[in-house]
Design a protein around this nucleic acid. Structure first.
Lengths: 209, 209, 209, 209
DNA sequence: GTATAATCGAGACGGTACGTCAAGTCTTATC
DNA sequence: GATAAGACTTGACGTACCGTCTCGATTATAC
């Protein structure tokens, strides 16, 4: 899970302090939210968590690594809180467009949640420049959602609502990527109307029918 | 053009050393290419450029700012080298799909050019986290291309190849954003085949016709 | 007068700006008085004097050199103001002890004049470490007074009040140096009573008579 | 002992590295001897001592403070080397003049020892301008000697060789200060003959007997 | 009474050192 | 053996001045 490239003899994780781990996650997320990622320091996290610096270096390899796990932990918590049935499921009412629009509206809400924004941007930025981290972050955080979109597209193919030769992994990018880019690069405003439009364009194309 | 938030009395730009400016651009781009953005330092740039640190701080506000201008300069140079006629023009053969596919293949080539990759990623990453820088970088570097796509879509609308109610600024995101996301976040491989597919999906939609 | 070790072709002093010279002296003395010698900078003097840095470097070799001349100028002004007859003359009433005590009391007053204290200490400190400057400062500033003490001792020798084998140049150190050391090194308080005592001890010795 | 004005939480001196302390003293003294005080820098000391700059800033407040302690340490070492019986004792043979002359000749030798000259001048100069440092340096370095002179004078008073109304603390300045001034300000040459003369003048006075 | 050349104010430049911050390593004492 | 604490070396930060240099603009003699 961690990026740790174990140089020293691997520490004995059975003796690990759960208290410290929690405190470090909390401190890291709080600091990123308060002062931003670049001004968040390992020393700062350690001090705020009431933890020795070595305890951080023992279990994580970098600031980004700490944050990645802290963020994963936060996501898992959020999922558990939301209840197991609801979580991450794309509804299948038979109407693909409606189902996609509904889920994308939830995503829009999440992107605006300030609790997520700071750490998410930090991780995304780090991932752009650090390929290893980027791939892990995508796999852990983004992949589950993408998989569900792909599944929903496949189900629509079976229902005859999507052409059978369409690659679902590419199809989903028609709405996921534009939203992602507007959020990452400030290329445009994000709204329900916007995501609704994306779904319509994606499903029915730009060309006249 | 610079992000410089003039605190001190603005320096007299008529007396600026062109020699230093060039040397700083070259050093910055070389270092980012060689050791990566995070390990590129202002001190390193200054040393390599044979320049005092103050000369950098006098004219730029941050490492990212230096790199942004260096990269802009590089792009302008590249444009000038390429000749004024070809540059940044999307062909209009009457066949929108073919025209888009052709241009996107050039973009794929450029994304793989190692001369551009380092600085581009660095800027993109910084822009994710620093909204001001992000907006400027997008405006300077991305916007011209986006504008041309929008223009080409509009021309296709007039030719009846694209529905008149389609918003060109959103339409173009159907192929630009997926490519951008795969490049930024390593969410998938980039190839001519991939961009061709994007154009097809975007124009004709996922739904059966 | 200056310490300038002329490297470049000597500047033409006939065309020198008297206005600038005065402004530099004033600025230098004011700055030393206000922020102390170490925090006084050439740039600061130039800015305060409304003068280009080069104008300072053209005519002086160092901060200490500027200050030395500024201080000499100040001394000369003070002398001129005091009137030519009074200045630096040790009275000769026939009573050596009384005459020395009187002059030393004036010296005590001067050592306490804050206008002189800052620059004097600065020069003295610099002179301790920079032998060349030290010798010049002593020659310009201290020597005239020492010479007058020596003359007065000689006159006392002729009057039979001082043993003929006494070296006047050493004799005067018996009161000048203790006062100087207390002032320079804070080895003790300075008062009229103290200087009076010094004169008595020097003239009549420590041993019983 | 240090001038450190504890701003940050005081560091834990029990965990201080003795190795670093020694290396810093050695480097500081060596640099002052080699290039002089003004060209000795904190960075230079740190580099030469193989020590981080912060380790210096953690324990000392300034270059002068480092040097003061380094010099004190050197003096203590020298004392220990010289053996406890000899050190700093003014002989009491019953002949005050002879005893003083003997000790002053040793002082003359020491003033010429190049190992001491550089750091001593540096400290003295700094002390002229920085009263706090000056007082500490005098108390630590000069005071012990002065005290011994005072004691010897008192003993001579008991033996009837010095008038009982003489203040020993002022008396000793008659030979200490002239020597100090010649050394500090280059006001004259220093020799055995000179110090012998000072003692004679001081004891028997300038006036005929 | 101009020509003309040096000085002048200004300030950009390549540098050095400053004092601070944080990184990652190491040591000590505690639990 | 993991931990909290924090001293250590390292290296970059952004700032302040150094002394040199190039600019017009301004004198102030010498033509």
């Amino acid at each position: 899970m961690s990026l740790k490239k174990s140089a020293q003899p691997a520490p004995d994780s059975t003796r690990r302090s759960e208290r410290s781990r929690r405190a470090i996650y909390d401190a890291a997320l709080a600091l990123v939210a308060e002062v931003g990622y670049p001004r968040t320091t390992i020393e700062g996290i350690a001090a705020r968590a009431g933890v020795g610096k070595q305890t951080i270096y023992r279990w994580w390899s970098s600031k980004a690594d700490v944050l990645l796990e802290a963020f994963l932990d936060l996501s898992e918590q959020a999922s558990r809180d939301a209840g197991p049935e609801y979580e991450f499921a794309i509804p299948d009412t038979g109407d693909l467009a409606a189902d996609l629009k509904a889920v994308l509206r939830l995503t829009v809400d999440q992107l605006r949640d300030p609790r997520f924004e700071g750490p998410s941007r930090a991780l995304a930025a780090e991932g752009v420049v650090d390929e290893q981290l980027g791939r892990i972050a995508v796999a852990k955080l983004l992949e589950p959602s993408l998989q569900m979109y792909a599944d929903r597209v496949r189900s629509a193919q079976e229902a005859g609502q999507v052409r059978p030769d369409v690659d679902p992994r590419i199809a989903l990018e028609l709405w996921v990527s534009p939203l992602a880019q507007r959020w990452l690069q400030y290329t445009g405003p994000i709204s329900y109307e916007y995501t609704d439009t994306l779904v319509d364009y994606a499903l029915y194309g730009l060309a006249p029918r």
